[in-house]
């Protein structure tokens, strides 16, 4: 697990992988599975209500993580399937792709989960998620009016996120 050394936002965000706006949505969960933020840019299909959707997403990530930890072919000691693991412990994953979307996932050492859903042809978004994490640190964590664990309602964060996401995917 890599830790995020500099707290400062790097002066120039990572180079966009492709041009055009094809990000679908973004989720931020804290370590308890509370959805702190849900942003939506382009989502024609909704099968569930918002709360159910967040629960399903968190459940998917949790189970996929325990699956990858169990499947890890490079280590012999893998523990039991379904036992919760600390962030950074065991083999995790950084993205998956279906024919209609690509989900990129990052977990911070404190258990904050960032999920970005984009067009299936977008490239590696690990650097972009780190940049978004830095935005979170700058505009949410350092906001004196923000209580940890509460849904994010920071105007500055939302606008800078929108702006950045438009530039990447």
């Amino acid at each position: 697990m890599q830790f995020f050394g500099s707290a400062e936002i790097s002066p120039s965000p990572p180079v966009p992988t492709t041009s055009g706006n094809n990000a679908h949505m973004m989720y931020v969960f804290n370590r308890n599975g509370v959805c702190l933020l849900y942003r939506e840019w382009n989502r024609p299909l909704r099968t569930l209500n918002a709360q159910q959707d967040h629960k399903l997403m968190f459940g998917l990530l949790f189970s996929l993580k325990s699956l990858t930890a169990k499947m890890d072919p490079t280590s012999a000691e893998r523990g039991n399937l379904g036992v919760p693991q600390l962030p950074g412990q065991g083999c995790s994953f950084h993205s998956f792709r279906t024919n209609t979307y690509k989900l990129s996932f990052m977990e911070s050492p404190s258990g904050l989960k960032l999920i970005l859903i984009t067009h299936p042809r977008t490239g590696d978004l690990r650097q972009s998620l780190k940049y978004i994490y830095n935005l979170y640190v700058e505009y949410v964590v350092k906001n004196p009016l923000y209580t940890p664990g509460a849904p994010i309602r920071c105007e500055l964060f939302n606008t800078s996120l929108d702006q950045y996401v438009r530039s990447i995917a």
Binding site: H24, L60, T68, C91, F93, F96, T98, N99, T100, Y101
Partner: peptide, 20 residues
């Protein structure tokens, strides 16, 4: 497939984990 933002999703094709 349920979480897809658009119609016609047929499930995960590639999962990129840290070691595989």
């Amino acid at each position: 497939q349920q979480l897809s933002p658009t119609t016609g999703c047929s499930g995960i094709e590639l999962l990129e984990a840290d070691t595989f």
